[in-house]
Design a protein around this nucleic acid. Structure first.
Lengths: 331, 331
DNA sequence: CTGAAAGCGCTTACAG
DNA sequence: CTGAAAGCGCTTACAG
């Protein structure tokens, strides 16, 4: 900027005014400055600008990994921000790839929201976060009253288990997600509610405690399927985990859906590609991202007047990983 | 930071030393400062730090949109950066969603590389870019000698067209990509080469000029298919465009692959999900991202000693959108 | 209409 | 071992 000022023979204050289109600069000066900018290929530093200004028109997104789930969310966020005047900065910590680390989102949030961003979206946070700028959580922690958008996990899970019940399954295993997340809790609630409603007692030994990380499901599925009396169906709280169940089933000689039915949750793109295709509950991750960005945008400008907690509908997608149980459940 | 300094009864200089783990601070002071940091939940501002320091350990990525292609690239980048000590910042301009705007990448690059990032990856740039920090392009412009990673587009396209030729097709249409990109050019070259090698003359009226944007293919496909003598097969330079060809074919009453064979390029996840599944050339977008990040990382630390232009292999994925031509090409 | 000066939150020689 | 001061690249009252 000082180069530009020198070239145009003015002060940096004036250059700044021209760059920001402020009034009160003579046409002649504007022209001179513009041509200097042009010639030098000057572009203002995002960092310096944001340090000085309160408003940056940049929104942030922090996520702990970039698997399919996040990628879908991102598409929705971008769509919502399209031509909104807000740019997006996504911050990803290299240490966090695929593994949760307590408090990561708080760290990143604080580092960004100091000055860089006007507000942030945080995807599947670890805990409640505080920030001086607005934050909306996608898939918040349990009991959070902060702005958030989430799928109707309870209804989705209930439908999934009802689907299995209607096929005739009675011994239905469950692989739970990370306990602290509202989504994990609701999905488990849905599982319990559907069984209870159907008069099927909940068997705690049929429940495995995963954490949404696909890998966490592998040992749990193994335990469930190596019992003398394995379940005839397994409902996993996420597709990533369900895919691992499929893997273990294959390894152990269970045919799906012949010996074992499997249902997931999320409907990530991969679920349609496996053989057999995974029956799952669709939560539009695109929509989650879209709505979160829409809310954050308005929160930042102070125009939001809808409820600060959005719940999006889910729907059951029946593919070929589910079928009625056979009498001989063991291969 | 001044809050922390006050609470700990030291200067901000000392706080800075503690935060950055510099030597020469008494154990007692360190303890005091740490406890103040803890209590106040202090986190250093990324912006201020990067403004002051030359090295930030943050790498940047700029892309003009976030469709499947970019999402896949991103996964590869994140994988390569995992536990590398480098964080990643992705910058997305809201005005650019899905549409090219000349020079966008240069603008963003300059704004980021001023101080925020140590280097950048730019995905399908519009032109050659200059920057004081290292830049690696994924899918560079034609004739670029800057660091880049790209798929073997020539071989891929040749194979695709040879596949159609071997099925018996002779009138093969082509929908080209954005001319300035090396990838678009090579894919067209591959198309021409395969035809020429087979002794089939290239018919310029069978070539449509798209720009990789899916929408650009719709009118072109319409023109091609509404001719009195439509081609029996169409090769599109990207899956996004090929999917649109499928759409137009359906609309016009062509059955695929009965009346028309269609081949794409990229192998985005959606291509496996359409009905019929799209035959396409796989270029591992994940690999492109992975290699680009690996190169950038070493370029920044000055350790890169491999060639600065990486070409990755491609492979043909045959699904059900291709078949031998029938005698009656018109429905 | 324009400039000198202060300050955003940090880091880093330079003194002491 | 620690602090006062300068400065990274901007913006914005405050004068003039």
């Amino acid at each position: 900027m000082s180069d530009v000022a020198r070239a145009a023979g003015v002060s940096t204050a004036t250059v700044s005014r021209v760059v920001n289109g402020h009034y009160g600069v003579s046409a002649r000066t504007v022209a001179q400055v513009r041509s200097a900018i042009e010639q030098l290929g000057y572009e203002s530093s995002l960092v310096a600008t944001s340090l000085r200004r309160s408003r940056t028109n940049v929104l942030g997104l922090v996520a702990h990994s970039f698997q399919s789930y996040t990628a879908e969310v991102l598409k929705g966020v971008m769509k919502a921000l399209s031509r909104s005047g807000f740019d997006l900065i996504i911050y990803a910590n290299s240490d966090l790839y695929g593994s949760y680390s307590e408090g990561w989102e708080q760290r990143h949030l604080t580092r960004l929201s100091g000055t860089l961003t006007d507000g942030c979206i945080v995807v599947t946070p670890w805990g409640e976060v505080r920030s001086r700028t607005p934050v909306v959580a996608i898939d918040p922690v349990r009991g959070s009253t902060a702005p958030s958008v989430t799928a109707d996990n309870l209804a989705g899970a209930t439908t999934a288990v009802e689907h299995l019940l209607s096929l005739g399954h009675r011994r239905i295993g469950f692989i739970a997600g990370r306990d602290s997340l509202a989504s994990a809790w609701s999905r488990e609630e849905g599982y319990r509610a559907a069984l209870t409603n159907a008069g099927v007692p909940v068997d705690p030994t049929l429940i495995g405690r995963g954490d949404f990380n696909p890998e966490s499901a592998t040992p749990l599925a193994r335990v469930l399927l190596q019992r003398p009396d394995p379940p005839s169906a397994i409902f996993a709280a996420s597709d990533g985990m369900a895919l691992k169940v499929l893997e273990v089933a294959r390894e152990l000689g269970f045919s799906v859906p012949g010996d074992l039915s499997v249902v997931g949750f999320d409907n990530i793109p991969e679920s349609a590609l496996t053989e057999p295709g995974l029956t799952t509950v669709d939560q539009s991750m695109y929509q989650l991202g879209y709505e979160a960005a829409r809310m954050l945008k308005s929160l930042v400008t102070g125009e939001w007047d809808e409820p600060r907690q959005i719940v999006l509908p889910t729907s059951l997608v029946v593919r070929s990983s589910t079928a009625p149980p056979t009498s001989a459940a063991r291969p």
